[in-house]
Design a protein around this nucleic acid. Sequence first.
DNA 1: GCGACAG
DNA 2: ATCTTGTCGC
Length: 241
Amino acid sequence: MTIPGDWLSPPDLKAATAAQRAIAEACETRDRINSVRLLAGADTSMKWRDSRGPIHAAIAPLAWPERVILPPAVATRIPPFAYVPGYLGFREVPALVAAWETLAEKPGLLFVDGHGRAHPRRCGIATHVGVLLDVPAIGVAKSILCGRVEGDLGEEPGSTAPLVDRGEVVAVAVRTRARALPVYVGIGHRISLETAVEWVLALSEGRRLPLPTRLAHDAANTARRAFSSSPREAGGGGPLA
DNA sequence: GCGACAG
DNA sequence: ATCTTGTCGC
């Protein structure tokens, strides 16, 4: 499928909104996953209170089912605008795509830090990056953007409760760890909600966040610190804009 | 108009 | 998102 430039870099929020509606339309909500040999977490890091400074992205691969950790791919880009709820993807996706392109072997499943379809226009960052790269993607968010949890979420790890927005189940609240706040697991692209939850539980290992997400978070932070100490050598190569 | 608001 | 030390509980 042809990918319009506006899906990556729209000229303004009006065009971005239109792009999100189109991306949501292109998003697939059923399982269409190839045999997964490589999983990866995707996350970004930035300087504190510097909403327009560079975004450092990391994609951290993990061999499956051996859980062998492979070297992360990183890239740094300047975001087009400061953070606006609902438009996170346009800040982080360019850096994530740049990091993805440096990977010799492409992962068959991505764990993205943020929502999938649990978004006002059903186009959270996990859906955004999943559709752009045409790779199965799971959204794992730490708080709610829209909708509300229905019913009671059990205290035991593995418990779930639906996150409903405007009458639609857009994600599942999952208790991945005892006495910890739940995470919200949603469809990014080419995966069902049920399968997404299974993957997250299989990789949580008694922690709140799944392993790929933790690895990507660490790698993005490492990239940011390296960039701060010597911007020339860091950044994964390539232009910042 | 008002409140809510991923990272 | 990020800063920072200790502290509490399984």
